[in-house]
């Protein structure tokens, strides 16, 4: 493999160049990907995992995840899951200790290549302890690139599902737009006349004000009277939106939808005409089933 980059745009050590010099993608047998994240981030890495499987056809792919956030993990695109506990499995109020984490990190078998898509202190430790022959990073801060044999910086101005693939591009992978999330068969589109509103977010300060959501739903339910306008509830107590629904329930085309199991929720989003949300998790789920935002 010959590296495809300009020195100012990415980083590769001499060790990386030597390692890759006599390798073809077919020679790579074991790859680990570290992604300790929530569901929206798991959606973002699906095109990367699909591309990786194509580019390294003989590689067994292991995904390292955080046991506190496994909802929506892309199990269908990897061969094995490696789990790290940030909190004690028996007492969720306690964090796990350093030695416990080191022991768990070491259960990841030696890899040909490890991709650190998380860029946290813990993921750096896992990368370091993995003994991988090639360590590839995707850091926020340029100084962090020195922890890896190869690195591409992540950009604030490029879609993350796209920029994460830069690491594969550096190795010679050619991806063609549009992005593929691999849900076409699992959640086939059968668009019905429903517009979905999700007024939640990971923190209250990130939410668009509920009064604004209310006015928006009023205007859109007038504009599209034959569509169902569905306020979608989330799993958290703060995501029930009962006050919002109460103020609109006299409108016969405004409905409240309870939180659904993941597969049902994905199909529901796939079938929706439009999704309006300020939460990146739900937004990435809708994008992954090629919905309109």
């Amino acid at each position: 493999m010959r590296l495809n980059f300009r020195p100012v745009s990415a980083f590769a050590s001499k060790k990386a160049k030597v390692y890759l010099k006599d390798k073809n993608p077919e020679d790579i047998k074991n790859i680990a990907v570290i992604r300790h994240a929530a569901i929206g981030d798991f959606m973002n890495i699906r095109p990367f995992l699909i591309g990786m499987r194509e580019f390294f056809p003989n590689a067994k792919i292991t995904l390292s995840v955080n046991s506190s956030a496994v909802y929506g993990l892309p199990q269908d695109l990897v061969d094995e899951i490696h789990v790290m506990d940030k909190v004690c499995p028996k007492d969720k109020s306690k964090k796990t200790g350093l030695f416990y984490r080191i022991r768990q990190a070491k259960t990841l078998k030696q890899q040909d290549i490890i991709f650190d898509l998380t860029d946290s202190t813990l993921s750096l430790w896992i990368t370091f302890l993995s003994g991988a022959k090639l360590k590839v990073g995707y850091p926020y801060r340029s100084i962090r690139r020195y922890f890896y044999d190869m690195a591409t910086l992540r950009s604030e101005y490029v879609l993350e599902a796209d920029s994460v693939q830069h690491m594969l591009n550096m190795l010679g992978y050619k991806n063609n737009a549009p992005l593929r999330y691999g849900f076409e068969e699992k959640y086939p589109k059968n668009v019905v006349n429903q517009i979905v509103y999700f007024a939640g977010a990971s923190a209250n300060f990130k939410c668009w004000e509920q009064e604004k959501f209310k006015s928006l739903i009023e205007k859109l339910s007038d504009r599209y009277p034959s569509d169902k306008h569905i306020i979608l509830q989330g799993v958290n107590a703060s995501e029930k939106f009962l006050d919002l629904y109460e103020s609109l329930k006299e409108r016969t085309n405004v409905l409240l939808q309870k939180a659904m199991p993941l597969d049902e929720a994905m199909q529901f989003l796939s079938n929706s005409k439009c999704v309006i949300a300020n939460d990146t998790g739900l937004r990435n789920m809708a994008i992954a089933v090629e919905n309109r935002q």
């Binding site: 950009s155 604030e156 101005y157 879609l159 993350e160 599902a161 994008i287 090629e290 309109r292």
Partner: peptide, 14 residues
Amino acid sequence: TGAFRYWPRDGKHD
């Protein structure tokens, strides 16, 4: 967090 990281500019999303 900026918006661009989460926004596919393919004409189907805004």
